[in-house]
Design a protein around this nucleic acid. Structure first.
Lengths: 232, 232
DNA sequence: CTTACCACTGTGGTCTAACCACACTGTAAT
DNA sequence: ATTACAGTGTGGTTAGACCACAGTGGTAAG
């Protein structure tokens, strides 16, 4: 077993034993190296991996942002991993989109009416009506979809859904510029969003799921992803 | 931007530009360091991350297993990430199981009849009938479920499904020892497997999906996961 | 000529020791 | 009381060395 894997194992044990919890701080790299009888290099390799997994965040200096602290951001980590695999041509963009439709449809169907996430989603829709540019609109759109997925109460589905979107963010971002009429597209998307949210709040999960599926598939089809999955 | 991220960016560009493909070799660590004007340490940190993502595999010595080569194993990489997040208590085991049911049901419903994966699945079932011990049985079981998921033809769903199973492998493995009557459970699981495969081959996707959902949920319920998601 | 041995080479794996930038903390000078 | 600044501990980066490993190829023994 390689040395950095030993460090990883030790840290994972700290986590599963509860000795290290969310928000907790790892010992300093030098201290950990001495304690585990390994070099700081190996400790750092392990920390890098945990950082890439979204389990930990490293900060220099001193104070609240300093040190290596335990976080929980599986979404961005999974997204980076998927993006790299898309780059190797092993994961087709079409499969990403299809999976996203699957997860978000499920989430829309099972969304719990009345949870705070749905209120946040409604506010986001209002903000999208007055978004000054495309980038702002897309950022709000992302948060809306995440909020909707979170309303189903399954952290794994939420994380995966967010990672799928993140993995192909570049593609979607580039292709929006090629749309014939952004204003028309924007208006349609906003209307679809409201219809989805209404269906959810009316406890019509089936309809909400159908609308979400059509919404996502429609956007990517119009943007050309799936039909033309050629890389940049 | 940190130095190792620069290296990551460079490698990702090589991948998306097609200059580096699956099975290809990265330059040696020393060569890359010199080329990018960074230290070998930073190159190694980047390689570690890619390795954790299942994008490359590093091997010492010389010959075919040596050097850092591009692979495509998102399943095990995502599985490790999820396992760590389960350890931080951020991802409940119940959510993992629920997501696995969702993905595998979908895959069973959309499985393409006649693909090689289904033939492999059938062979695996025969081997499971004569499995000498529980570990062998579970290994074959894992391969059966993966083969079934692959029959749907969506690489993302296959990878995620495999990773979900891998993330909670330890839990399932420990709990099988606590089952009241393994022989009875094994017989039931094998019968359910054959029923699922039959439904798929009969083009009855709906029934296959139902059977898969009941199969997975039943196993974890019997093993106590979900009802008692306490860590080891 | 065949065979066995062994130095050579290039790979990743590990370690040490040093220096840097950073951000806060305490103290001393004003 | 305010300001300035040295001190301290954090992660970030680098250079250089040595190790184990696995093929390669030359060389000596048979």
């Amino acid at each position: 077993m390689r040395t950095h894997e030993l460090v990883l194992q030790w840290i994972e044990k700290q986590l599963s034993d509860g000795d290290l919890a969310l928000g907790g701080r790892l010992p300093g790299e030098r201290a950990m190296a001495e304690q585990l009888k390994v070099s700081r290099t190996s400790v750092r390799e392990a920390v890098r991996i945990l950082e890439a997994m979204g389990v930990v965040r490293a900060g220099v200096g001193s104070g609240k942002d300093a040190g290596t602290v335990v976080i929980a951001e599986p979404g961005s980590a999974l997204g980076s991993t998927l993006r790299l695999h898309v780059a190797t041509r092993h994961l087709p963009v079409a499969d990403i989109v299809e999976t996203r439709v699957l997860l978000e449809s499920w989430a829309a169907q099972r969304a719990h009416v009345g949870v705070p996430e749905l209120e946040e989603a409604a506010e986001l829709l209002d903000q999208m009506d007055t978004a000054p540019d495309i980038d702002t609109f897309l950022a709000l759109d992302a948060r809306f979809h995440v909020a909707l997925a979170q309303a189903a109460g399954n952290a794994v589905v939420s994380a995966m859904m967010a990672s799928l979107r993140g993995a192909i963010e570049n593609y979607a971002g580039e292709l929006t510029g090629n749309l014939p009429d952004w204003n028309a597209t924007s208006a349609r998307l906003r209307a679809e969003h409201r219809a989805i949210l209404t269906a959810v709040n009316n406890h019509d999960g089936g309809k909400a799921a159908e609308l979400v599926a059509a919404h996502i598939q429609g956007f990517y089809t119009e943007a050309g992803v799936g039909a033309n999955p050629s890389p940049k």
